[in-house]
């Protein structure tokens, strides 16, 4: 009995790496979490949960190979792994298959995650991903009519921000229509004018980048914002405030935020 503090000391000496790895995973710090999980795996290569989380981190950081994806898919079948971890593995593998265009596999994995998780955020994400997947592939709606009906009735739970999070990057609604004239102007400048005259702007971000940011944030108001930048550019260089060295060249910082802070969040969105 009196030895218990000693045992707890030994136990604590073993557990911090795994506890830290899980915490970092929950924080969404994928790079650091992956590093910590690797530390855990070096000490305990048989730790299956750690292996699954490492593979999820690899997916999140774009460092995954086909073996990682296969392992995640197989994890769903592993009875000795916590059900919650299996659901997470299914969800992440499903997203990767969706990204790769394999909608059927993605559907099966999302359904597994949706039906097996007790974690509310994962439940919502899996449901929302299924909803969006079926929106893009209506034929999947016939696979399980009861599930389709269930998702349809839960639609109000999938708010705008959740849908944005679950959407694949290429399905992003993109910039508003009012940003298009600015984007076309910059595309024309970058393809036709810039190659001939080279990089001439002395500011960071460059004038074309500044214009693009202004148009994406404020729509057509980007034009007067950019005109104001042209008026000011020689003064910025002359005053030599906020210099930044970029590739051996001194440039001057003039962020958009310093000139639109009084406009609020933007008029375009």
């Amino acid at each position: 009995m009196w030895l218990s503090p000693l045992f707890s000391h030994f136990a604590n000496a073993q557990s911090p790496a795994w506890a830290l790895a899980r915490e970092l995973f929950e924080n969404g710090d994928w790079v650091a979490s992956r590093r910590e999980i690797r530390r855990v795996l070096l000490a305990d290569p048989e730790n299956r949960e750690a292996r699954i989380l490492a593979d999820v981190c690899s997916l999140k950081t774009g460092q995954a190979d086909s073996a990682s994806l296969e392992r995640l898919e197989q994890a769903v079948e592993m009875p000795n792994v916590e059900l919650e971890t299996r659901a997470l593995a299914a969800y992440e593998a499903g997203r990767e298959y969706w990204r790769m265009g394999d909608s059927e596999k993605a559907y099966d994995l999302f359904v597994y995650a949706y039906r097996n998780t007790e974690d509310n955020p994962l439940f919502l994400r899996a449901g929302c991903s299924l909803f969006l997947l079926m929106k893009g592939k209506p034929e999947l709606k016939t696979v399980s009519p009861s599930l389709t009906l269930q998702l349809k009735s839960s639609r109000r739970l999938f708010d705008w921000s959740l849908q944005q999070e679950c959407m694949l990057p290429e399905e992003d609604a993109g910039t508003g229509i009012l940003a298009k004239p600015g984007e076309w102007t910059v595309a024309l400048y970058r393809s036709q004018v810039s190659p001939a005259i080279g990089m001439r702007c002395s500011c960071v971000p460059s004038c074309s980048e500044y214009f693009l940011l202004a148009c994406r944030k404020h729509g057509l108001l980007g034009f007067p914002i950019q005109a104001d930048r042209f008026f000011r550019e020689p003064s910025i260089v002359q005053q030599r405030q906020n210099p930044i060295e970029m590739g051996g060249v001194i440039k001057y910082s003039d962020p958009l935020e310093a000139h639109d802070f009084w406009l609020g969040e933007g008029v375009d969105r």
Partner: peptide, 16 residues
């Protein structure tokens, strides 16, 4: 563009 820039610049210069 220049003209609207003049008006925007007038407002922004005061804020600056």
């Amino acid at each position: 563009t220049w003209y609207s820039g003049s008006i925007y610049g007038g407002i922004d210069a005061a804020h600056r």
